[in-house]
Design a protein around this nucleic acid. Structure first.
Lengths: 184, 184
DNA sequence: CAATGCATGTAATGAGTTACATGATTCC
DNA sequence: GGAATCATGTAACTCATTACATGCATTG
């Protein structure tokens, strides 16, 4: 089993989902394309960590709703208690930032402005999601025994990080201003 | 050319390095193993984006010191001006956190304590590196035209993030305490 | 005397992306 | 009429990790 497999189990232990839905929900901690998810779901089902139910829909294509089995839950529980591997971060923006001195101030500013606007959108999305959680589950989400606890604390973390990214970008922008004061 | 290729160019435009050194320096923004780096350096040299010089050493194995060519620098410059791809973050710890309600408070605490100690070490390392930069290059590093500017602002960002990770872990720990107050 | 650091490389395998493939519905 | 959303799947390819391979010097 690889980490993506556990990510799917972790997602499904909270609530049963279709592969399509999982692809979107996974965005928080493990980005993966549907072409990787669908075959893995099939494999996990064959190994009896998951089961599924075919659901007919009108106006929409049929879907498979996957649920975790007891065997799957036991496997996940064991894995959680083990020490996690080091995180992997691969961000082209950071590579560009490292060599930013090669470009002119204008190009540099554009790069950071674009980054800010991307992260501002992320903040809005994250805030809406957190509001939804609070409305649906109340103070329950701050209790470790709630199945929404993990999702809640992760979203809070993401929100912090996204806000900090914006703050950092603004700090860099201020350094850029210093170097090349605008004439006006 | 893939992003790792540009990451190598970006690293080498600051100063010439051996493949071994690059493997370590790349840690900030693009984790890669030497088995991926060495063949790619060979390829980039064949395509004349890099050149190298064989350096004999005593007591240590010989090494190849790679430098970026003008052709390589031009390629990198063009790439920087283009919009970066979305970042990829894959962190097993976050997967575990998402399903943390499955475990007992003790296991949960251990997971977060371990995370804190890993990040405390990172903070120390990062602070030392930043101090070094300031000593070596002074206020120069806050100027975009300095070749150390990118490295400096990236390290500041990393340091912020690592400190925030610790703060977030402590916040979660406080929620865990609330749920299961220690008797004593 | 075992482990770690320096230093470079290849081969096999696993993980992940892009492209190909289909099809109805809804929104602009 | 074109794009986006829902929904699942496979094939080809690229990217990344693990394992194999070597060898000397220093440190504990």
């Amino acid at each position: 089993m690889n980490a993506l497999g556990y990510a799917l189990l972790g997602m499904l232990v909270r609530k049963p989902c279709s592969g399509y839905e999982l692809t979107q929900l996974l965005e928080v901690f493990w980005q993966a394309k549907h072409s990787q998810i669908y075959p893995l779901l099939t494999k996990l089902e064959q190994e009896q960590f998951l089961s599924y139910e075919q659901v007919q829909q009108t106006g929409k294509p049929d879907k498979k709703i996957y649920s975790i089995t007891e065997k799957g839950q036991a496997l996940l529980q064991d894995w959680i208690a083990q020490a996690p591997a080091a995180p992997v971060i691969r961000d082209e923006f950071l590579v560009k930032v490292y060599a930013i001195w090669l470009t002119d101030v204008h190009t540099a500013k554009k790069l950071f402005e674009e980054r800010i606007s991307v992260y501002e959108e992320k903040v809005l999305f994250r805030e809406t999601e957190i509001k939804k959680m609070k409305q649906e589950h109340g103070k329950d989400i701050e209790d470790i025994t709630s199945r929404h606890f993990g999702r809640y604390i992760l979203f809070q973390r993401k929100l912090n990080q996204e806000k900090d990214e914006i703050a950092w970008c603004r700090w860099v922008m201020s350094l850029l201003e210093k170097g090349a004061p605008t004439i006006g």
